[in-house]
Design a protein around this nucleic acid. Sequence first.
DNA 1: ATGGTTTTGACAATCATTATCAATAAGAGA
DNA 2: TCTCTTATTGATAATGATTGTCAAAACCAT
Lengths: 137, 137
Amino acid sequence: MKRNTWQREAVREALDDTEGFISAQALHSALHASGSPIGLATVYRALGDLAAKGDADSLQSPEGEALYRACSTTGHHHHLICRNCGLTVEIAADEVETWAKRVAAEHGFTGAAHVVDVFGLCANCTKLGTSETGRNP
Amino acid sequence: MKRNTWQREAVREALDDTEGFISAQALHSALHASGSPIGLATVYRALGDLAAKGDADSLQSPEGEALYRACSTTGHHHHLICRNCGLTVEIAADEVETWAKRVAAEHGFTGAAHVVDVFGLCANCTKLGTSETGRNP
DNA sequence: ATGGTTTTGACAATCATTATCAATAAGAGA
DNA sequence: TCTCTTATTGATAATGATTGTCAAAACCAT
């Protein structure tokens, strides 16, 4: 039987309060920062449960971390994420929307969902121009 | 200066001989199995180089492993993946390419990398009916 | 062949994630 | 409300992929 714990509530709320995707580790840090003594393993479990129940989306970042997002079926949009400071900008993506649908249809695919997110260095972090990793163009 | 070593050749050939995606670990095992004493770290480096040069594709498996594949098309492209049977189709994505660059630039972002993958049900799996195998949410 | 430099490879280090397991607390029933 | 059963928690160990280290080996222009 599923039990309700404040921990699970906390994770769900923290995820709801988050714009865009966040890693389990980051979410755990955020919870700690706001005074919650929740354990890391519990955050992982809660996020896993949410994803399994379909209440959360998950994707893999280019670095291989698992990122989670509250599943807001209302209003679909994408994200531009700074890989240095984590700044996230919401972006409209009508073009991509249409493109994804068309491409899927062309290959006979149905029920197409797409993961479209752009990672980069935001203006600030670019200016600071520290030790860059120089990844894919 | 880049040097040519039999190790890099071996990795490139092993990747060419592989259908679909393969993990670095698996490729290393395969090489060992065919008598090559190549080191694991070297396989990782070679694959990384190939991916950086655009001669190989890489994506993250749902389990978080990095998977590689010999790149048939030159240049960067994306994938259309069946969430039921795993069938993967390479898709050109010039539009998305341009879009991603433009959006990043508009917001002052530099060094943009993007995650653009479309998941859906391929023609076959659509025909078979959706809720049969019920694997991926 | 020689020398300067890149590359290799065994192993340690790192990072995210999962398993372990005793202690805790949720919730049903008395 | 109180008790009891058992799902859940959390500190930590374990796991598994990937990256860093650095001396030794290999490559290639000369």
